[in-house]
């Protein structure tokens, strides 16, 4: 049984006439201690998926269909009181920009102790001890002094460490990190990623890493899931997806990495833009930008198939596999 399993999840935005669909029929599973990356362009719905898991969608967003199960417990029907018990305790979150994530008028210590005391009966001094211990754990120097400081007195990297420490306070089962290094200095990025990876590995915490950066993915995640226009288009082991991307969108993304272009050449890019929510193409959502698009791509969205490398939703892959199938049958006849 998976730690977290999401089935047929749809997220919509309430509108006066017809609700806009932001996540289409998303299914995924996460094992205990597994590190999963969710990759895609801005607006692909990756952050939305992260927020949907902890039921923190901003209005007018809401979960329209599907189920989210944590340890076989259905989450979508929980009361707000029950949600409060899950957030922070079972599923912790790390936000994108550490400069605006911590409350500016409360000290680091206050924000840590309140997180502990919201979930466990423990006196202030013990909570403080635990908080300082976790600050030391994320390698913050002089943790006892940091405890009394305010967010503005810490650097961005330091704040993100504090946020990671807060995520660890209650020994959660899952940490959802939404672009945890995007707002940081490049030199700090690697440190924070390494810390995150190690901490998850040491404590057996499962990690969902939301990012648009394949460089980040390759360093951290065992499994990768590629999203486009609110849909999952490909998922599989990270190394294999990077070495042999199947879906034309994944290929495009990887090809767009700066190191893929030759020196002096223009950087590669995927032509066109992601479709807006109120103007989604019929059929495969990627077909207007896809170099391999055929007629059937414009009519009916493809189903998931296993390509031998990853699970992917694309007719081109389907056709290719079918082309091989008769051959293998003939082989079998011989």
């Amino acid at each position: 049984m998976s730690l977290l399993s999401i089935n047929g999840l749809s997220v919509k935005f309430k509108q006066r006439h017809e609700d806009l669909v932001a996540l289409h029929n998303v299914s995924l599973s996460l094992e205990r201690g597994e590190r999963l990356a969710i990759v895609g362009e801005s607006g692909a719905g990756k952050s939305l998926l992260g927020y949907a898991i902890v039921n923190l969608l901003m209005k007018p967003g809401f979960i329209a269909e599907g189920s989210i199960k944590l340890d076989d417990r259905e989450l979508t029907r929980l009361s707000s009181k029950q949600w409060q018990e899950i957030r922070g305790k079972k599923i912790a979150m790390i936000f994108q920009d550490p400069m605006v994530t911590l409350n500016p008028v409360l000290s680091v210590g206050d924000q840590m102790v309140e997180a502990i005391r919201s979930h466990t009966r423990i006196n202030y001094n013990d909570a403080k001890k635990l908080a300082i211990e976790k600050l030391a754990h994320v390698r913050i120097a002089a943790p006892a002094q940091r405890f009394d400081q305010y967010p503005h007195e810490l650097s961005g990297g330091m704040r993100q460490r504090v946020i990671i420490a807060i995520a660890l306070l209650l020994a959660p089962e899952i940490i959802i990190a939404d672009e945890p290094t995007t707002a940081l200095d490049v030199t700090i990025q690697a440190e924070i990623l390494q810390l995150l990876k190690q901490i998850c590995a040491d404590n057996g915490v499962a990690l969902i890493l939301i990012t648009h950066d394949f460089g980040v993915v390759s360093r951290i995640a065992e499994r990768t899931l590629v999203m486009y226009a609110g849909r999952i288009v490909e998922q599989g082991p990270t190394l294999e997806i990077i070495n042999d991307p199947q879906h034309p969108y994944t290929q495009g993304l990887l090809n767009a990495l700066p190191q893929m272009a030759l020196p002096g050449q223009r950087l590669n890019q995927i032509q066109g833009n992601m479709p807006p929510l109120n103007d989604q193409p019929r059929g495969c959502a990627f077909h207007p930008r896809c170099p391999y698009a055929e007629d059937k791509c414009r009519i009916q969205p493809p189903d998931f198939i296993f390509s031998g490398v990853s699970t992917v939703a694309c007719y081109a892959i389907e056709d290719m596999l079918q082309a091989f199938e008769p051959l293998s049958e003939e082989d079998a006849d011989d």
Binding site: G88, K89, F95, T101, L102
Partner: peptide
Amino acid sequence: QSDYIRYAWAKGISAPRIYFIH
């Protein structure tokens, strides 16, 4: 609407504390 309030929700803080302290 700010990030730190959303983050406070994500920490599982009670609603009164979020409204009246944060």
